[in-house]
Simulated scan of single mutants.
Amino acid sequence: MNNDSTALYAFRKYGNTVLRAAFAFSGSYSEAEDIVQEVFLSLHINPRSFNDDEHLKAWLLRVTVNKCKNLRRSFRFSRTCSLDELENSEAICEISTKGRELREQIAALPKKYAQVIYLHYYEGYSIKEMAEITGKNENTVGSLLRRGREKLRAELEREDEICREEIIKTL
């Protein structure tokens, strides 16, 4: 496979995965699209060789995570409001209402927890693989995943309790 076809192959096979990851980390569909372009452009400009498709996918997700981190640190990000926040960006996502609510709960978590929860539950990575992707120690990733689950569980239980109280009030 030559360099041109590597980037094209990667885009066709993992384009949607990279887009979902970028959206999960950036919270903005338009920013996610820009990040996807940057990720595949960097693969095209600086071709690499990969052991297999999983290695390619892990590299793409690692680059995506790094680009999202760079976006979060940028001056532009901290000083602007995206159009996605103003419009109903949920119409763009093709996921169920419950899935959307859970996705919003995950996005509301601190980024360090949301990142590992997304990689584990949405992309199916193990703690060891997530440690390689995020550049963190395996024990750190395991702790982040455990704490993220605890925070998510507590938030879901709190919302469930609020819903029950609202139902009782209407009776």
Rank of each mutant, 00 (worst) to 15 (best):
A7C: 10
L8S: 12
L8E: 10
Y9V: 00
Y9T: 02
A10C: 10
K13V: 05
L19F: 15
A24P: 00
A24R: 01
F25S: 14
S26K: 03
S28G: 02
F50W: 04
E54P: 01
H55M: 08
A58V: 08
W59P: 00
V65D: 01
N66Q: 11
R72P: 02
F75E: 15
F77K: 08
C81I: 12
E85K: 08
L86R: 06
S89H: 08
C93I: 14
E94V: 07
E94F: 05
S96V: 07
K98Q: 10
L102K: 11
E104H: 14
E104S: 06
E104T: 03
K112D: 04
V116A: 05
Y121F: 12
Y125G: 06
I127L: 14
E129T: 07
E132S: 13
I133A: 02
T134R: 02
N137D: 13
E138R: 12
T140N: 09
V141R: 01
V141N: 02
S143M: 09
R147N: 11
E150W: 02
L152R: 05
R153N: 09
D160G: 07
D160H: 03
C163D: 14
C163A: 14
C163W: 13
E165I: 05
E165V: 02
E165S: 07
E165F: 03
E166N: 15
K169S: 10
